[in-house]
């Protein structure tokens, strides 16, 4: 499967990007510059060169800027992002877009563990695969993974959507609250209190919107997806459920 979506800033009609080469600048220097941007900044487009797996690249952004990162990033890229549109032209380490509040993060390659963990809002798109704990404790983010996800994904997922075009690993949605999970492929196993649910019209509409955000609407058949969510049997502690706690 080769589903493409162009979210890069390079093709947009914008002023030439400001370029920061991490070969010559530190992550601290980069982030300090980005944090100094005001909400009404006219420095709207940035290109980061030579990230080489460094951690916390563009963490804590809070401005409507476009950021292209040319290469692989380490842990917590775009952590706690607000407003910014970040594209990683490579793979992402642990916790990409963790605790994101708003904005948009697109990983062109694969993502490591805990992608989009605890995030409250915004959209995270992963073109490749995401490994374990994708969307763990998600609180409102929309995550779309074009490949497959690993075990314990959406653990204790509270709100938001996790859409997977590939397969899901073991214990999907363990102890889930109100997050909506859509998986096109197989699910190795469901976690405690996570069940398959009917894919009604309103869910199809929601799913369509997520696929559209990822630029793959029309490329996949919505009816191929199954919906998973909480059975809500663990919402109130009961001794008969002790083995599930």
């Amino acid at each position: 499967m080769n589903l493409s979506s162009n979210t890069s800033t390079s093709g947009l009609d914008l002023a030439p990007p400001s370029v920061i080469d991490l070969e010559h600048e530190t992550v601290r220097g980069l982030n300090a510059k980005m944090h100094g941007l005001s909400h009404g900044t006219n420095h709207g487009c940035w290109r980061i060169l030579n990230p080489r797996g460094r951690h916390a690249i563009v963490a804590g952004l809070d401005a409507p800027v476009m950021v292209d990162i040319a290469g692989n990033v380490g842990y917590y890229c775009a952590g706690m992002n607000k407003q910014a549109h970040v594209v990683v032209h490579g793979n992402a380490g642990v916790g990409v877009a963790e605790n994101m509040m708003s904005g948009f993060v697109h990983v062109k390659g694969d993502a490591s563990q805990a992608a989009g963990a605890t995030a409250h809002g915004g959209t995270l798109i992963i073109d490749g695969n995401a490994t374990a704990r994708c969307g763990i404790s998600m609180k409102g983010i929309d995550i779309i993974v074009k490949g497959s996800i690993g075990h314990m994904s959406a653990f204790m997922g509270q709100a938001g959507t996790l859409t997977v075009l590939g397969d899901a690993g073991e214990a999907l949605g363990d102890s889930i609250y109100e997050a909506h999970l859509y998986v096109r492929g197989t699910v190795t196993s469901l976690g405690a209190d996570c069940v398959i649910k009917a894919l009604r019209d309103k869910h199809k509409a929601e799913l369509f919107e997520k696929l559209k955000a990822a630029g793959v609407d029309g490329q996949v058949d919505i009816s191929d997806f199954k919906r998973y969510g909480s059975a809500r049997t663990l919402y109130h502690f009961h001794i008969d459920n002790a083995s599930n706690y």
Binding site: N31, A56, Y75, Y76, V94, A114, T118, S137
Partner: peptide
């Protein structure tokens, strides 16, 4: 949810410092 062990904790602390500009 997004780190395990002291090596990861070091990177997590680095992230929090970056977000709050040290």
């Amino acid at each position: 949810p997004d780190w395990t062990g002291p090596d990861d904790l070091e990177i997590k602390i680095e992230e929090l410092r970056e977000i709050t500009d040290w």
